[in-house]
Write a protein that binds this DNA or RNA. Structure first.
Length: 426
DNA sequence: TCTGGGGTCCTAGGACCC
DNA sequence: TCTGGGGTCCTAGGACCC
């Protein structure tokens, strides 16, 4: 059996941890740039605050009810996420925990006897809460997709389930599937849900009764086939090994306010490239392809929000690299190529791909002797920036004025990762 | 005028996830 | 006036090979 363990309203829970006065009060957390709402406490949900809705639209409701709003504080969430995952790793055998996202992980429970699953899951939930202060919900079932179904229901019925739901009999599984709308199944997005409803497939149960060949035809080939098999209780999505390196690394941002100067866009791209290269070095990788894109403001005056068309291009490097300055140079060349002085830009981004292990480069006969020196320079910069924080060392092309920087007006202190912002007890 | 039957690799784009 | 930032996998189709 497998479990999915999921932190309840994770970002909101992190914010409340250091503001006990906000317990049982409505809280929301905003995306970068304070654009839309990406986490809501139960109280905020009850008030009708929409998930992923634009902040400015929800603002009247938020102010009327005194909802506490925070900008995203990823230093804080990342650290608390690590604590939750570490706790679980301590309570489970090696390799049984697969971190799936910042607030959830799959857990292999095949070492637990069937009759003990509920009690053990409760033990996990209580220990995590006691050690980290974060509340989690746990769904247990035969497959990953079914455990997601169980998890969703456990959260919907917190009082009766105690945030733990185990689907260990065909009958329980069937009932759970019948109570799950098809659009809430993991792997069914908007496009498929429209299609499925049109075919009168309205619940997860309806979908689970279709045969695999049908799913292959209508739900995108092998992906759909796997999904239906999992709903039938046949394990088809395996536990993944952790520490799988990324195949693509992206750093992209909306600008705090629209930008028209080439100089500003180049600064932003140089900064994003530095960040992406840091991520690349953290996984000991080197990239041979760098892509840059910019998004101009929509020209038409339509009432609906739409980005203008994205303009992008890429360069394939002669040799994969992880050195920031070797990546900034082609990135800036790409910006020059894409920039149009008549346009106003809202967003830009950098993507690194064609990622290979750094070691395979190091041994190359064709690498210049200087390459190793650069690598040492890079790791020194990374170390200093890690120790001192806030990018003490950066490349001049990243700029100092930073007209493009995103807005974060409501960010809470980084309580757990900055000395000067530590939580104080008076 | 008529022109096979495999392969592989790459890219763009679609669909999904949190 | 104001709508995030990452990722993944899969498929189709083109270019190229023998």
């Amino acid at each position: 059996m497998k479990a999915i363990i999921d932190c309840n309203s994770f970002y909101c829970s992190c914010e409340r941890l250091f503001r006990p006065a906000l317990q049982n009060k409505p809280v929301v957390v905003l995306s970068n740039n304070d654009g839309c709402i990406i986490s809501r406490s139960d109280e905020a949900k009850a008030l009708g605050v929409e998930m992923a809705g634009p902040y400015f639209k929800a603002k009247p409701l938020i102010e009327k009810h005194g909802v506490a709003a925070f900008s995203s504080n990823y230093n804080l969430y990342g650290d608390l996420s690590w604590r939750v995952m570490e706790t679980l790793r301590m309570l489970l055998p090696p390799h049984a925990v697969e971190v799936y996202s910042v607030d959830e992980c799959f857990v292999d429970l095949s070492h637990i006897r069937r009759q003990d699953l509920a009690a053990f899951s409760l033990h996990l939930r209580e220990t995590v809460e006691q050690w980290t202060g974060i509340k989690v919900s746990i769904g247990v079932a035969a497959t990953k997709v079914l455990s997601k179904v169980a998890n969703r229901l456990s959260k919907k019925n917190k009082e009766s389930t105690n945030c733990v739901l185990v689907l260990d009999t065909p009958r329980k599984t069937e009932q759970a599937l019948q109570r799950t709308p098809v659009e809430d199944v993991w792997g069914v997005g908007h496009q498929y849900s429209v299609k499925l409803h049109a075919m009168n497939i309205n619940t997860a149960y309806d979908l689970s009764t279709r045969d695999v060949a049908w799913a292959t035809k209508h739900l995108g080939g092998v992906t759909g086939a796997r999904l239906v098999r999992e709903l039938k209780g046949i394990e088809s999505i395996q536990m993944m090994d952790e520490l799988v390196n990324k195949k693509m690394i992206a750093t992209t941002r909306m600008f705090g306010s629209p930008v028209r100067e080439l100089k500003d866009i180049k600064e932003a791209i140089a900064t994003y490239t530095s960040r992406a290269a840091e991520k690349l070095r953290r996984q000991h990788g080197a990239a041979n392809t760098i892509s840059v894109f910019v998004v101009p403001r929509e020209q038409s005056h339509s009432t609906y929000f739409r980005h203008g068309p994205t303009v992008g291009s890429h360069i394939i490097l002669p040799l994969a690299t992880s050195c920031t300055h070797e990546l900034i140079k082609p990135a800036l060349a790409l910006v020059e190529r894409l920039y149009d002085a008549t346009k106003v830009y809202k967003k830009a981004g950098v993507m690194l791909s064609g990622i290979v292990p750094d070691s395979s480069i190091q041994g190359s006969l064709f690498a210049e002797p200087a390459a190793n020196k650069n690598r040492m320079l890079m790791s020194m910069i990374d170390n200093v920036n890690f120790a001192m924080r806030d990018d003490v060392l950066k490349f001049a092309s990243s700029g100092t004025t930073r007209n493009w920087k995103m807005r974060q007006e409501l960010r809470s202190p980084r309580y757990t990762t900055r000395w000067e912002e530590l939580y104080e007890i008076s």
